[in-house]
Design a protein around this nucleic acid. Structure first.
Ligand SMILES: [Mg+2]
Ligand SMILES: [Mg+2]
Length: 480
DNA sequence: ACTCTCACG
DNA sequence: ACGTACGTGAGAGTT
């Protein structure tokens, strides 16, 4: 058939808008056709081109791209149920023109930004990988999830009754407003900060009160279980295919401004793991009979990237010697030997390491660690004395952002920081933190994307059957 | 549509 | 939450 031939032959270049969507829902290519396509760069997608050009733009619909280029839309949209063949043909012709014009425009932009290699050798092949992962889906143990739902409902009902009894009235615990009224007005508990709309009932505020007041402990327990029940049990069950028992997430390859992917309907990148109940939720994700789930993740990839891009000798040495990085940081910041680092010192060093990558202030560190701002300042000062090139890297990055308006990753992915020269201090400092973080978070995204593309090709080449099914930022999950 | 809260890396 | 730690998506309540 001429159409199949056209799709297969790589001398005919194909330009799309939302290639991953096409591959997931409409276009079935054989694996050998996909290998040919990747090698010859036969498919190019204007949605991804526009994302690489400005990953903060948010809307990459064809309509939006057309308006950006000043192309007015002529064909009138007609309600699907009333559309005639002629209506459909008119819209499709217009889409074809828009895709062509957008391609010609963004091609020049990406070339100017030196993004062509990232586009053709990483992002385009990745669209094929992601489409294949989405189509395969993740198997869910529905019966187990239903049992868990019943168990959660029982526990929630008991907590509910206890909370009503301690409050002396029945109210909607899920309403922050009603909860604030009960805790901080009726029961006169000391309130923490306020939100725009009332008293804050966020977990960190409630945790400070929990040791003194049983009702607060019960509310925190209620919150944890209610979150798991609504989002991860009921939410997931609604999205499971009743025939195949699989959920099929959608990865957004043009969503996150740093170059990360995101995942929705369901979001499979935020499945619980930290709490005991969370781990029980995770057990609902299974492999078919005769298979197992296998997960492989990078160790401290962001801090390794920080070591690499800063060139800090102490940080590089720590990684080259295979040291536990948080223990090493604790020894350096608290001026003890690695042997003398206590669990609590390591915990504090871990908070410091995360904070560094996020551009944290002494205020933020003090809040997180529950220490004074003076103490936090001393920690940060010690850190930068021990890792001086990290400080230089941060200063250099902010200066680059100020001078050029953008920052980049290892593979030249670019993010513009529109607030970086703002006269509004708050906005400017927020842009500075984003500038510090993006090259690190974004380079990690570059690295795992390259890994995904290489692994996928290599698995095909060897005819190995293990199936890559999820990416969780620094982790790949396989059905094996 | 917005706010608050909270799950993940 | 905020001026004060990056990046996401989702559910519930409220308007
Ligand atoms: Mg890891
Ligand atoms: Mg939101």
């Amino acid at each position: 058939m001429w159409w199949d031939e056209l799709l297969r032959v790589t001398s005919v270049k194909k330009v799309t808008h939302d290639l991953k969507g096409l591959l997931r829902h409409h276009l079935i290519l054989s694996e050998s056709s996909m290998e040919d396509a990747l090698r010859d760069e036969a498919w190019q997608d204007v949605r991804i081109m526009a994302y690489l050009h400005d990953p903060d733009a948010g809307d990459y619909s064809l309509e939006r791209l057309g308006r950006n280029l000043g192309i007015s839309i002529v064909a009138q949209p007609v309600a699907k149920s009333h559309a005639t063949d002629n209506d459909r043909i008119a819209k499709l012709c217009e889409s074809a023109v828009l895709i062509h014009k957008a391609y010609e425009w963004y091609k020049v932009r990406l070339d100017e930004m030196d993004l062509w290699e990232l586009f053709t050798t990483v992002e385009m092949p990745l669209s094929f990988v992601l489409a294949s992962m989405e189509r395969h889906g993740m198997l869910i143990d529905i019966e187990y999830l239903r049992q868990l739902r019943d168990e959660l409902n029982t526990a929630l009902r008991e907590l509910e009754e206890r909370i009503y009894k301690l409050a002396g009235e029945r109210f909607n615990i899920r309403s922050p407003r009603q909860l604030g009224r009960v805790l901080f007005e009726k029961l006169q508990l000391p309130h923490g900060r306020r939100t725009k709309t009332g008293y804050s009932t966020a977990a960190d505020v409630l945790e400070a009160l929990a040791p003194q007041y049983e009702i607060v402990t019960r509310v925190l327990e209620y919150r944890e279980l209610e979150k798991l029940r609504s989002t991860y049990v009921d939410g997931l069950l609604e999205l499971v295919n009743p025939t195949t028992h699989r959920v099929h997430t959608t990865f957004d390859q043009a969503g996150a401004a740093t170059g990360r992917l995101s995942s929705s309907e369901p979001n499979l990148q935020n499945i619980p793991i930290r709490s005991e109940w969370g781990k029980r939720i995770r057990r609902a994700f299974i492999a078919p009979s005769g298979h197992v789930l296998l997960s492989a993740d990078y160790s401290q990839i962001e801090l390794r990237i920080l070591a690499h891009v800063s060139g800090d000798e102490a940080l590089c040495n720590a990684f080259m010697h295979g040291e536990d990085i948080h223990t090493r940081t604790a020894a350096d910041v608290f001026d003890v030997s690695m042997d003398e680092v206590t669990d609590d010192m390591r915990r504090r060093a871990k908070v410091i390491n995360f904070g560094i990558v996020y551009g944290m202030s002494s205020f933020g560190l003090a809040q997180q660690l529950g220490i004074s701002q003076d103490e936090a300042m001393r920690y940060i000062e010690n850190y930068f004395n021990r890792y001086p090139k990290v400080k230089e890297y941060i200063e250099r990055t902010i200066e680059h952002a100020r001078a050029h308006g953008y920052v980049t990753t290892l593979l030249k992915r670019r993010r513009y920081l529109r607030g970086i020269n703002s006269t509004d201090e708050r906005e400017r400092e927020a842009a500075q933190r984003a500038a510090i973080n993006m090259p690190i978070q974004g380079s990690a995204a570059d690295i795992i994307k390259v890994a995904m593309v290489r692994l996928w090709s290599e698995m095909l080449r060897r005819n190995w059957r293990a199936k890559m099914i999820l990416q969780v930022h620094d982790e790949l999950v396989w059905e094996v």
